[in-house]
Computed example of a mutant assay.
Amino acid sequence: MAERQPAAGEPRTRLSGGPGRLILTLYGVFAVGATSRAVYQLSTQFDEAPLAYLLSALAAVVYVFITVALARGGETARRLALVCITAELVGVLAIGTWTEVQPSEFPDQTVWSDYGRGYLFLPVILPVIGLWWLRRRPAERDSAKPSPE
């Protein structure tokens, strides 16, 4: 996917290389994985664990928003990513705790069950890294903007 070039003077988030690219890739994988899992579960097994499957669908929506915001770049998208990643972290912690305290409410796993145990705890680790990265790398002015002649 080609990175959108910001307009002249528009701040951008540097996710095009190194750790930023890895963060974007992981969110993309989670967006596709959580979405496909939720669609399958909601369409074929909804009666078995409706709460778990609806929460998985919510996680999928959050991952899609984060992925799009990170890929898009720019200050508005960066702010959206910060909000969504914060919501993701709150969701992982809340649902992770809920599944530990009341496991009977969850006859099947969600993406965020047990703090993402089924996904090597990446659902709880990734938002911490994502928030750290976005805060560490605040929006920067596009260094490639043309200089006045």
Rank of each mutant, 00 (worst) to 15 (best):
residue 42 L to W: 05
residue 44 T to V: 02
residue 44 T to L: 02
residue 46 F to K: 00
residue 46 F to Q: 01
residue 46 F to L: 00
residue 46 F to V: 01
residue 47 D to A: 04
residue 48 E to Y: 09
residue 48 E to V: 14
residue 49 A to W: 00
residue 49 A to M: 01
residue 49 A to C: 05
residue 50 P to H: 01
residue 51 L to V: 05
residue 58 L to D: 03
residue 60 A to N: 03
residue 61 V to C: 11
residue 61 V to R: 05
residue 62 V to Y: 07
residue 62 V to K: 08
residue 62 V to C: 09
residue 63 Y to T: 07
residue 64 V to K: 07
residue 65 F to R: 07
residue 65 F to M: 12
residue 65 F to D: 11
residue 68 V to C: 06
residue 70 L to C: 07
residue 70 L to P: 04
residue 70 L to Y: 03
residue 71 A to E: 02
residue 71 A to R: 02
residue 71 A to V: 04
residue 72 R to W: 00
residue 74 G to N: 01
residue 76 T to S: 00
residue 76 T to E: 00
residue 76 T to L: 01
residue 79 R to H: 01
residue 81 A to N: 05
residue 83 V to D: 07
residue 83 V to S: 09
residue 84 C to K: 07
residue 84 C to D: 14
residue 85 I to N: 07
residue 88 E to A: 05
residue 88 E to V: 07
residue 88 E to F: 08
residue 89 L to W: 06
residue 90 V to S: 08
residue 90 V to P: 05
residue 91 G to S: 09
residue 91 G to V: 04
residue 94 A to H: 01
residue 95 I to F: 10
residue 97 T to Q: 13
residue 98 W to S: 13
residue 101 V to R: 03
residue 102 Q to Y: 09
residue 105 E to R: 11
residue 105 E to G: 09
residue 105 E to Y: 11
residue 110 T to Y: 04
residue 111 V to Q: 06
residue 111 V to L: 09
residue 111 V to F: 06
residue 112 W to A: 14
residue 113 S to L: 04
residue 114 D to I: 07
residue 115 Y to N: 14
residue 117 R to A: 15
residue 117 R to Q: 09
residue 120 L to W: 07
residue 121 F to M: 14
residue 123 P to K: 05
residue 124 V to P: 10
residue 125 I to R: 12
residue 125 I to S: 15
residue 125 I to Q: 15
residue 127 P to V: 14
residue 128 V to W: 14
residue 130 G to F: 15
residue 131 L to D: 13
residue 132 W to V: 12
residue 132 W to R: 07
residue 132 W to Q: 09
residue 137 R to D: 14
residue 137 R to T: 11
residue 138 P to S: 14
residue 139 A to K: 07
residue 139 A to M: 10
residue 140 E to D: 12
residue 141 R to W: 05
residue 142 D to Q: 08
residue 143 S to G: 14
residue 144 A to S: 04
residue 144 A to L: 03
residue 144 A to Q: 03
residue 145 K to T: 10
residue 145 K to E: 15
residue 146 P to F: 10
